[in-house]
């Protein structure tokens, strides 16, 4: 088991390295840098001025070297200006290379500086993560039990009326992406046109204090889309288990229907959905981005949009590192959990 986890963690690191390099390369592609130069030094500057601005700010070095600097495995760039002052990746204002550390990358804990927010990247990310964590927590709290219940009740008697009604409902929610359900919810529950005004159409106030009014719509919007999917998986898994030979064995042993479902079917039927739930996390991320944009909730997803829209390189890199780690960690947890739930996989 330990070996398996080690291999998985090694794979994770390689994946994270590959992905961050791709992000680094794409954000540092020629036209992107030019855009930065123009936005920092003025939009009317000539091509030659762009080149010299990039040169002075360390953007002209080879991509691989700069990626190594960002990682913190190569010393940060330094250069002396004509006026004798030093500039460099690791240098604060007025510092000289001797005073500052040679390496300042991710490995040293330095995630860089966000151009858009004018703050340290780590600060921006942490604040975003905290807000998104609250959102995701509520989503999971609503979505997972609801989806499992719907799936189990539907799959318990395949083909029954209850099953058909619930399954059709589940299909409906999987066909409703967040930007559709969000728009419809806002229009119905908080617009002046319909006039119900039960909930807030914006979740900005939820950043300070979460209330029923300001958080219901964003949570429901995300939960609904994922719920149908998990419910359908659970239903399929449950229906398959219910037709299996060992359920028949249990039934013919004289076990009552309720006990068959609870004692014999449930554990086997939950193995597949567990994997699905864990793999939902990366998928939910897209939903989070949409919902945070739609409801103006300044969490991680909103940060991602801001960073990507403005090519805020350091912030974007940090965002991708975090999301990749979230994705890979959930995959790891899903594998381990699968092994724990399923005695057939467990080490003998």
């Amino acid at each position: 088991m330990a070996r398996f986890i080690l291999v998985r963690i090694a794979t994770m690191l390689v994946t994270a390295l590959c992905l961050t390099f791709i992000v680094f390369w794409l954000t540092n592609i020629g036209p992107n840098l030019e855009k930065i130069a123009r936005s920092e030094a003025g939009s009317r500057i000539s091509d030659a001025e762009v080149a010299s601005w990039l040169e002075r700010n360390g953007y002209a070095e080879p991509v691989l070297l700069r990626y190594a600097q960002w990682l913190g495995v190569a010393p940060g760039w330094t250069r002396q200006e004509a006026d004798g002052t030093w500039r460099g990746r690791c240098l604060g204002p007025g510092e000289t290379p001797e005073e500052a550390p040679a390496f300042c990358g991710v490995l040293q804990g330095d995630w860089g500086f966000s151009r858009v927010f004018r703050r340290d990247v780590s600060e921006v990310i942490l604040r975003g993560l905290a807000l998104t964590g609250a959102l995701m927590g509520w989503v999971m709290l609503v979505m997972v039990p609801g989806a499992l219940l719907v799936g189990i009740v539907a799959g318990m008697r395949e083909g029954s009326r209850t099953d058909r009604v619930l399954s059709t409902g589940a299909i409906l929610t999987t066909a409703t992406p967040e930007y559709v359900s969000g728009v419809v919810f806002i229009a119905v529950f908080s617009s002046s046109a319909v006039g119900l005004r039960w909930f807030n159409g914006s979740a900005t106030s939820a950043m300070d204090a979460i209330t029923f009014q300001n958080f219901t719509l964003p949570v429901m919007t995300i939960a609904l889309y994922g719920m149908g999917y998990i419910a359908r998986m659970t239903r399929a898994s449950m229906a398959e288990v219910m037709t299996s030979q060992y359920i028949r064995t249990a039934r013919l042993k004289g076990v009552s229907f309720g006990a068959v479902v609870l004692r014999h079917a449930l554990r086997n039927a939950l193995i597949a959905p567990f994997t699905v739930i864990m793999l939902q996390f990366p998928w939910l991320l897209t939903g989070v981005v949409i919902v945070e944009t739609l409801f103006n909730y300044k969490g991680f997803g909103w940060t991602l949009v801001e960073a990507a829209g403005n090519n805020d390189i350091d912030l974007l890199l940090a965002v991708s590192v975090v999301s990749v780690i979230v994705v890979l960690l959930t995959q790891l947890i899903s594998d381990i959990g699968y092994a724990l739930l399923n005695p057939r996989i467990r080490l003998s």
Binding site: T249, L252, R267
Partner: peptide, 20 residues
């Protein structure tokens, strides 16, 4: 069922609950 009449099937693996 099970008390007076019991049944044994062809596939032993399939008739035992894998998670119990």
């Amino acid at each position: 069922r099970g008390r007076e009449i019991a049944m044994i099937y062809q596939e032993p693996m399939a008739s035992l609950n894998p998670a119990m």
